[in-house]
Design a protein around this nucleic acid. Sequence first.
DNA 1: AAGTGGTCTAGACCACACT
DNA 2: GTGTGGTCTAGACCACTTA
Lengths: 228, 228
Amino acid sequence: MIQEKQFGEGRLPSEPSLAKLLGVSRGTIRQAMEQLSKSGLLVRKHGAGTYVNQQVLNIQTRLEEVYDFVEMIHASGHSASVVHKGLELGAPETNAAKALRLGAEDEAITTSNVFLADNVPVIYCVDVIPAHLVKHAYLSEELHGPVYTFLENRCAQRVSYNITEVRPTAADKNLSQLLACLAGSSLHLFIEIGFNSDNQPIIFSEEYYRPEFFSFKVVRKMIPSSSG
Amino acid sequence: MIQEKQFGEGRLPSEPSLAKLLGVSRGTIRQAMEQLSKSGLLVRKHGAGTYVNQQVLNIQTRLEEVYDFVEMIHASGHSASVVHKGLELGAPETNAAKALRLGAEDEAITTSNVFLADNVPVIYCVDVIPAHLVKHAYLSEELHGPVYTFLENRCAQRVSYNITEVRPTAADKNLSQLLACLAGSSLHLFIEIGFNSDNQPIIFSEEYYRPEFFSFKVVRKMIPSSSG
DNA sequence: AAGTGGTCTAGACCACACT
DNA sequence: GTGTGGTCTAGACCACTTA
């Protein structure tokens, strides 16, 4: 009903009346509205009512959510493709080893890919997966591209959440070639650790984004009286 | 009880037993646990139990939350101070005007400040406030520093939420002087629009952070089976 | 099979905003 | 004062995991 703009930017019916209208209890209505409120679509005002916030519908890429690279590129109206850049089995980079809690002896698979939008390179991504997680034989082609399916099929692992550090960075010579941009131009660098539902780190990624193509936004709610 | 590590990284008592233990109903317990689960402190497993995730307690600065600059600096163990850089009343910059939905005739207050940690400049911030919001007389000194109190005291406005765009950028000559860093070095740029609870934009900010001093992290939950 | 979290109900009282 | 959202209760059934 909100999507059909039956209320526009205006006020929603009250909780009791919505409950009656939809034939459910007020608790159920509240649960749904709380979810929409947390995502920012609804704004609730104690004593006054609940209002639609069309604002946030315009946000393209929300940082709090994890997207498939290919979907992200499609969503911005481009065709997506992947170019595989390298695959290694051996001692991982120190940052990756630390994040994945690997010892000096442990090995890992390191795979790197470039994602293109309409044949323009826009994301460079390096993924590191601990070798001991791999349970089944696999073809190296399975690591040419998105790796989450590999984790599920060959490691019986599923990423439940990420902790992502967002950093600004500048393209060095290598990155400028990979992403076809000028050396020194600014890039998003996301350093991401993926955890399974047992809180074990199962994948480490470094992702470089060309900022001209992606706009990352966050809805930040105020908690105290803050300054800025 | 979680903070006192009564459960460590382990499993919490079940919902019914916690409810009995604390003398409340199960619904109340669930509501509390849902909040902690959304913030990432708890991980819930259907049919299995609820587990503590000490991981996220280590995150210093969470991007989803809005912090006072001064508090942020204190939290990282430094002493904070502010240097005022400029104050203007007049036509705002085009981006600001657009974000604040101002017409060609409308005026705005533009104030800029540098925040220091142990006397090292670490944040440069430009705030734009529509002039028509100002309801009371004020001293220009009130705009030397955090502006949220100004919004409350002189505009009777309170920011309810922000939409922040995160961008990588490089220091130009001006920024490199303001932040005492090399020209061309990478900086966080946050472009932030603050809204009141009526969804009206009331403040526009551009914030530049020296990335050596701040580490912004986000907990991103998986929704579908995604790729990366 | 037993125990866990996930969902829902029907009712109550409170805090707050409007008029 | 009336109506709104915020909180809480006591109970029920379902879906899932684990042993």
